[in-house]
Design a protein around this nucleic acid. Structure first.
Lengths: 169, 169
DNA sequence: TATTGTTATACTCTATAACTATA
DNA sequence: TATAGTTATAGAGTATAACAATA
């Protein structure tokens, strides 16, 4: 739903557009960035699910994790926890799942034996590369199709700027 | 976490910026709109929580519902369900909570006794007006502070355009 | 004494199935 | 037979506390 929405158990292809019920006027919400982020998130997640989630059996967070691990060296769970704002216990569980699928392994650091470096297996590397390749074009082909190149760049830059606002609430 | 995040039980004021652990390079994620939406959602939710969620005891979805109800006449649960992409049973539960707080009441339709019109109580109207007034300025004062007027407009328009893309996945 | 990661657990969110009552 | 709304419940997501091993 607006504001959330997990990976659906059934295919979300069926656009829930009923024939009858009149739509509500949402003009009093359209200035609210949080609302706009939420409604934009719905097609974004559908796109992700269709192009990556379903074919590669990856959830959004798993994709983000995999991509971060693939793009950095000696990644620790602490780093993942901070980068993705996921509590440490949940990182443990998510990595457990990926390790069971033989996508990655944990390797104790020799210099600080509390830490563990996350290493991709060959299969994990292949999966990460495949997901990355798809991610480069899936949105252009779908939800960003009706935006110009300039608009796409602008949207990404503005979102990043918002995300990285020097924080003072 | 990135992609989600419910209303925190503890105040999320404490920016989780540890001193030591080196940050990960996220460049392989920065082109992914879904990722950008997720990381922009974090400060957006913090802002909402600070300005509306905490002072008015409203969660994001409750705010959206209240605002839609306040801005339309004879709103039914079916309409809310569709507008916010929330399954009907969950609408029931959310409205139960708001009804218990005496923010709204349900009124059976005379023309179709299956439907119910959601009516704000005087207290509900006051709350909706207050929330709306805050929503008009909270983001400009915080996460959008470093964006020009043109950039703010552009961001909102692009997000809306993405959200309303003629749907073909 | 502080930090990395784990285990256990509680609470919330989201979705589905099955039901009631109206149409 | 179909629709609006409800009840009950399953399952995924999210967070905290308490602990082990290491620094």
């Amino acid at each position: 739903m607006i504001g959330r929405m997990r990976t659906p158990t059934t295919d979300p292809e069926k656009t829930d557009a009923d024939k009858s019920t009149p739509a509500l006027d949402e003009s009093r919400l359209q200035h609210v960035l949080g609302y706009l982020l939420a409604i934009a998130d719905v097609p974004s997640r559908k796109t992700f699910f269709k192009y990556i989630g379903k074919p590669l059996s990856l959830r959004p967070v798993e994709f983000s994790m995999l991509t971060l691990i693939a793009g950095n060296t000696d990644v620790t769970q602490k780093q993942l926890s901070q980068a993705l704002a996921i509590p440490a216990p949940n990182v443990t569980i998510m990595l457990d799942r990926l390790e069971q699928r033989e996508i990655l392994v944990r390797e104790r650091s020799e210099t600080d034996r509390r830490s563990q470096y996350i290493r991709l297996t060959p299969a994990g590397r292949t999966l990460a590369d495949k997901a990355h390749a798809i991610s480069l074009r899936m949105e252009e082909d779908s939800i960003l199709k009706h935006l110009s190149t300039g608009e796409r760049t602008m949207l990404r830059e503005l979102l990043y700027k918002v995300a990285r606002t020097p924080w003072k609430a």
